[in-house]
């Protein structure tokens, strides 16, 4: 495609920035980016951990091993994804992670079988699998199937995934797993509109020309949502996503069904 996938633009963001943001939103935990040694990456939010893949060209299990190794000890479970899923939804991430269950009690891997295919790069893993994955790479058994053969895997088909009402409402076609492999894929992805989100302004941010009532807009980032209602997202403004996470970061990605509350940064007495 002429440009590394990580740097491909999608509605004002890069695929990597979007993926990192979606994972951070869904997990609340650390996000690790595994890259080829020395690879240039587009801008990432503060706190993102970048690790170099020690052995290039070894395929997905090597990347999984590097990421799980970095997270082992910090987190019990991890969602592993490639960077080319522009429609990945936080609700999909949450649904898959939930399938792992409590520490020590559930399976080792929650593997979606969505839209007819296994999705090892949109799956949840226990970080304790890092050692097994490392061994498989050393043995040159590089396909995810080798990993799944040696641990407990729960498979989630479309119906199982869509038992989650939030996911069913916001990503009913499981577009979360649509990836961008070819220039045509990328062009098709770009033709699709930004996610529909609901914006509401509070307090003094409501001015002439800006709505006081909730308004549906198309926006892939917080900045785009602000722009859609004529609001400058500067230091005097904060955004609350779905009544929860508060941010001043305009590049935070939005997903279908999100609600964005814009408030004065000096909220409080």
């Amino acid at each position: 495609m002429g440009t590394p996938k990580a740097a491909l633009e999608w509605h004002g963001s890069t695929l990597l920035r979007r993926t990192v943001g979606i994972l951070a939103r869904a997990t609340g935990g650390p996000v690790v980016v595994v890259r080829a040694s020395g690879q240039d990456l587009p801008g990432l939010p503060p706190g993102t951990v970048v690790v170099d893949d020690p052995r290039e060209g070894k395929g997905p299990v090597q990347g999984i091993a590097a990421g799980l190794t970095e997270l082992h000890g910090q987190a019990e479970t991890a969602f592993v994804t490639s960077t080319d899923l522009p429609f990945l939804h936080p609700a999909f991430v949450s649904r898959v992670l939930t399938a792992l269950g409590a520490p020590g009690a559930g399976p080792d891997v929650a593997l979606p079988v969505a839209r007819g295919y296994q999705q090892p790069l949109a799956a949840a893993y226990r970080t304790g699998l890092a050692e097994l994955a490392e061994r498989l790479v050393k043995e040159d058994r590089l396909r995810p199937a080798f990993l799944f053969a040696e641990c407990a895997v729960t498979r989630l088909d479309d119906a199982a995934l869509l038992t989650d009402p939030v996911l069913a409402a916001r990503d009913p076609d499981l577009d979360s797993v649509l990836n961008v492999n070819t220039p045509d894929d990328y062009r098709a992805a770009r033709r699709r509109p930004a996610p529909e989100v609901t914006v509401r302004l509070f307090g003094a941010l409501v001015k002439a020309g800006r709505p006081a009532s909730p308004r549906a807009v198309r926006a892939a980032t917080v900045a785009a949502a602000a722009d859609a209602v004529g609001l400058l997202f500067d230091r005097h403004v904060t955004a609350a996503l779905n009544g929860d996470q508060i941010t001043r970061d305009p590049s935070i990605p939005l997903a279908a069904g999100d609600t964005v509350f814009f408030m004065s940064a000096d909220a409080g007495g």
Partner: peptide
Amino acid sequence: LANLLAFNAIS
């Protein structure tokens, strides 16, 4: 009083 609706929105 502007706080009231904003605080309500963020629990």
